[in-house]
Amino acid sequence: MDLDDAYANMPYIPGGAEFPDKWAADADAFRKSQALTGRARLGLMYGHGTREVLDLFMPEGTPKGLVVFVHGGYWMKFDRSYWSHFAAGVQAQGWAVAMPSYDLCPRVRISDITRQIANAVTVAAREIDGPVRLSGHSAGGHLVARMCAPGVLPDDIAARLAKIQPISPVSDLRPLMQLTMNSDLRVDEAEAQTESPIFQPKPTAPVTVWVGGDERPVFLDQARWLAEAWTCGHQVVTGKHHFDVIDALANPDSDMTRDLLG
């Protein structure tokens, strides 16, 4: 198997190259609408670096709790500004939503990003009372799964975790060592072991792993491996691929949104 091809999503998605521009436009429109209503707190620092920043979208009234959404991009692309509109579903159900950026490889390693997201979750959770629910897509699915490992989050924040929702996650990093992109990721045996969620203890918080039914076989495998390792929920969404499986988060009545908040 050509693993570089196996882990390539865009060439196998119709109009795949158009998705980032669409995400950015939809996210910008959402942020502007939120700013007009005074429900967007943009550019909150959770660390000292220029990318250690999050946006917080508030619901009407007192939040029921906090949802943190972590974006993907193979730990090498994008920032929070592409994904804001995916806060709409849970925000409409009364939840605050935090969306962090983070440093990208090769400037940092995946283990560094894990620590940054832990800081982002911690800072956001100390802004918003109540339960904390985590959702993340692709590399972001890996990162929210890592938040469940013992000692990654402070004890008081870990105790508030009420749901983990990895979407199309990379749960076993060992295959990445064989990819050309590993020249930037720099995953080695030690990091693959410590950063692969499949090697973590099963979380105490409920978990549902989601993946699109039309995704590349390796992503179907990665989702299944995590669901099997953690004996947790596993949803395969018929007709959805790697780029549109997350669309449901923008809908307050979707199965994905209900699962995240259930």
Rank of each mutant, 00 (worst) to 15 (best):
W23K: 02
P217F: 02
E52I: 12
K64H: 06
P20N: 10
R146Y: 03
T180M: 02
V144P: 09
W23R: 07
P106N: 03
V211N: 11
A98M: 07
T231H: 14
L185Q: 05
I198G: 04
H242E: 11
G262S: 14
E18V: 02
D259W: 13
S196V: 01
Y102H: 07
W225N: 13
A229P: 05
Q165L: 15
D221N: 08
S135Y: 15
T62P: 04
V97D: 10
D79I: 03
A229H: 09
S171W: 03
G262D: 14
L185C: 04
G262C: 05
Q200H: 13
E215Q: 04
H142P: 01
I164M: 15
R186N: 03
G239L: 09
P175H: 02
G61E: 06
M256C: 09
H234S: 09
Y74L: 07
C148N: 12
G15I: 05
L220W: 00
M58S: 04
M10P: 02
W210V: 13
R174L: 04
D155K: 15
W83T: 06
Y102T: 01
P206F: 12
L226S: 05
P106G: 03
L220V: 08
V108E: 07
D79C: 05
K240P: 13
A40S: 10
G43T: 01
A190V: 12
D79R: 05
F69S: 09
M256G: 08
Y74K: 07
H48W: 00
I117S: 02
D221G: 01
V121M: 07
H137Y: 09
A87G: 11
E191F: 00
M177L: 03
H137F: 06
W230V: 07
P63A: 14
F219N: 06
D221E: 11
A40K: 00
G16C: 04
H142M: 03
A227P: 13
I164F: 15
D103F: 02
P217N: 06
V68Q: 05
D255E: 15
M181Q: 10
T238Q: 13
S254I: 11
D259G: 13
G136V: 06
R80N: 08
A24F: 09
A27G: 01
L161Y: 11
A6G: 03
M256D: 12
I167K: 09
G262M: 10
V211G: 12
I113K: 09
R51D: 02
F199K: 09
E215C: 03
R186Q: 11
K240N: 14
D5R: 12
E191Y: 00
F19G: 07
K32W: 02
Q178E: 10
S138P: 03
T114C: 04
K240W: 10
Q116S: 05
P100W: 05
E228M: 14
R174M: 07
D112V: 02
R126S: 04
E52K: 11
P131N: 10
A40V: 00
G136I: 06
T37H: 12
R126F: 04
G141H: 13
A17E: 15
E195L: 00
A29Q: 08
Q178S: 14
W230M: 11
D103C: 04
I246L: 12
V218R: 01
F86C: 00
I246H: 07
R224N: 06
G49R: 14
V90Q: 11
R174K: 11
D214S: 14
A118K: 01
D259H: 12
D247P: 00
W95P: 06
A223I: 11
Q178A: 14
Q93E: 13
M45Q: 15
I164L: 15
M45F: 06
F57R: 15
E18S: 15
P63C: 14
